[in-house]
Design a protein around this nucleic acid. Structure first.
Lengths: 345, 345
DNA sequence: GTATTTTTGATTTACGTACATCAAAAATTC
DNA sequence: GAATTTTTGATGTACGTAAATCAAAAATAC
């Protein structure tokens, strides 16, 4: 049987009230006594029964999720997963609020973080934009003892407790390696379409891709990176131009969102162009393009996993508990036509 | 605020005791009254607070894991994950027992299942071997109201509640597709090394691979499947023979375990042989071979995820609760040298 | 209508923890 | 050594559910 507070009291030779004072760092305990109790806790290997504690406290976890607005299919999928988590609120004792901010707008994001702080939540999950004011806003949250998790895109130099997202350097490398192997000896340059170099994940992917696609001998020519700001229309125009300017284009790596535009441009050009296309994130559009052969490979991060992970970590941090590291590792999923999960629709 | 049993009692106009009788199907309630209570439950959207209920019941979940013995690195890794879960028993209210049985031995497995039944656990997780006596043993467990989850390898036609493992048909297809794309126009046949056709996962992988590697035109010659029974020594001898017999061998697909033998044979032959090797399961050996370039791609199933998933599902089933489907989907992970997770060691 | 059985209500204790109150004991100050 | 402050103990209530007991009420049988 698992030891309880009563066992600690007996072991330490103090009353239940004193054990309670130590466990919940309430004042009025001499350090000698505190030591006795802490020794008893260590000896018995006591761990607080979180379920019972939460019951007694009627605890709930108010959490705030901040993510970019706009028609980015991945972000809307992420939001759907947060909604799904909200539906489980009763069971999980969470109370989730979703806040939308303009994409790639550091000032707006910093404001949203400060607003969140005003509500005194137990934790905040945020899709970060890298900027000093955002780092500062996160620091303020942490000073108030609010747990912070970055979601999808990390925030360099910040005090965030955890990053719920993939290793984007490795993701870029993986894309580069696949591009290299899929192209084999085929001639022609490779184009790269990004969203914005303002977000860490895009920068990381670019770096990884560039390194891996030319690993060994290769000598593959990479065209200058173009930015489509995750906007389908913008991306489509950019890819149209690329296809015109480079008749012998061998491959395209789309490392951001707006794949609807990429797919439209490629299909206009006719897939017989034989261009090897690698993109990110499984959405209804990109899925269809993978099945039809317009896209050759998709790298994906499981939005549902990220959201559930963020919630677990925020709850654990709010209670000062540890987490199961391996469970919170977000995988870089590689989808070919052959290993697509069953369509949920 | 979430409704409680008190709210139901008030809503239905009955006493707390009656609500309790209905909720825990105790006898002695007229069907008219039972209906009243059930309507109140529906109206208020009551869901039992599992944490509070478990506290009141001092409930624990005795679980039994049955897996094959032997030096199969993947299975030993799986066992380590079960041990890790056992270390969390106090927090998760589980009480986990591990049972080992000879590999590929249906009779021994059926006996182990019957033994497990004798202990009256809340649930059983089992790495299945396909055989009628195993199916029958699982049926007996289910008759006793014991939840059953198959782990890694499924059991066709059985009454198991859930399968915690990957879609091995898709895994085989994925391997085939990668082999086809990686080989490109390179000449030469492809060899296939299996463990045993007695387990469902190996049969499925073979089927998927065969279909995908020759998709489209391809016309790749596949050598007859050889069985190494997941034994490194046996596998090494088989691969040695293959390399001698087929000087122009283009690729090898190892769909079972015993990769230590495969790697040894390939390295003896010298990797300049330029054979494209694709195998399953990330272990210390296969990881090193992937890094060194002896193996080109590894398909993996996350043993930790499978174990945690099995536990979640068994607990939920034991309580008659539903699960988060997406969370229990075990992914087919594709590892290249470029997206290897950080070495835990 | 009485006797019997079945159904329902009222009440209590328990699970492990949190939190509050008040009295008693110990330590500190002067 | 008395007065004051700090520390500790004893006790009770609460969280939401489970489970048990016993009495009261209602339904059924004869």
């Amino acid at each position: 049987m698992r030891p309880t507070v009563h066992d600690i009291a007996a072991e330490a030779g103090v009353s239940l009230a004193t054990v309670d004072r130590v466990l919940n760092n309430r004042p009025g305990v001499r350090s000698v006594t505190r030591d006795k109790v802490e020794r008893a806790i260590a000896t018995l290997g006591y761990v607080r029964d979180v379920a019972a504690a939460n019951l007694a406290k009627s605890r709930s976890y108010p959490l705030i999720f901040i993510l970019p607005e706009g028609e980015n299919a991945f972000m809307r999928g992420l939001e759907a997963e947060i909604e799904a988590a909200r539906a489980r609120s009763a069971v999980e004792r969470t109370d989730i609020t979703i806040v939308s901010v303009p994409a790639f707008d550091a000032a707006a994001l910093a404001n949203a973080l400060d607003d969140a702080r005003g509500h005194g939540p137990a934790g905040v999950a945020v899709v970060a934009v890298e900027a000093p004011e955002v780092v500062a806003a996160v620091a303020r949250l942490r000073e108030d003892g609010i747990a912070v998790v970055t979601l999808v895109s990390d925030l360099t130099g910040s005090q965030r407790d955890h990053f719920a997202g993939v290793d984007n350097l490795a993701a870029g490398r993986t894309a580069g390696s696949l591009m290299r192997r899929f192209l084999g000896s085929r001639e022609g340059p490779v184009a790269i379409v990004a969203g914005s170099m303002r977000v860490r994940d895009h920068r990381d992917r670019l770096e990884g891709f560039t390194a891996a696609v030319n690993e060994g001998d290769a000598g593959r020519v990479l065209l200058p990176v173009v930015e489509g700001h995750d906007d389908p229309g913008e991306v489509e125009a950019l890819v149209d131009d690329l296809l015109v300017a480079h008749a012998n284009l061998a491959g395209i790596y789309s490392l951001g969102a707006g794949n609807r535009g990429l797919i439209a441009a490629l299909e206009k050009a006719g897939r017989q162009s034989g261009i090897c296309a690698i993109a990110h994130e499984l959405t209804p559009y990109s899925r269809a393009a993978l099945v039809s052969g317009t896209i050759d490979a998709l790298l994906n991060q499981d939005a549902g996993h990220e959201v559930r992970s963020a919630i677990r970590v925020l709850k654990a941090r709010a209670d000062g508990l540890s987490m199961i590291e391996a469970q919170e590792r977000i995988r870089i999923e590689i989808f070919l036509r052959d290993n697509l999960p069953v369509d949920p629709a």
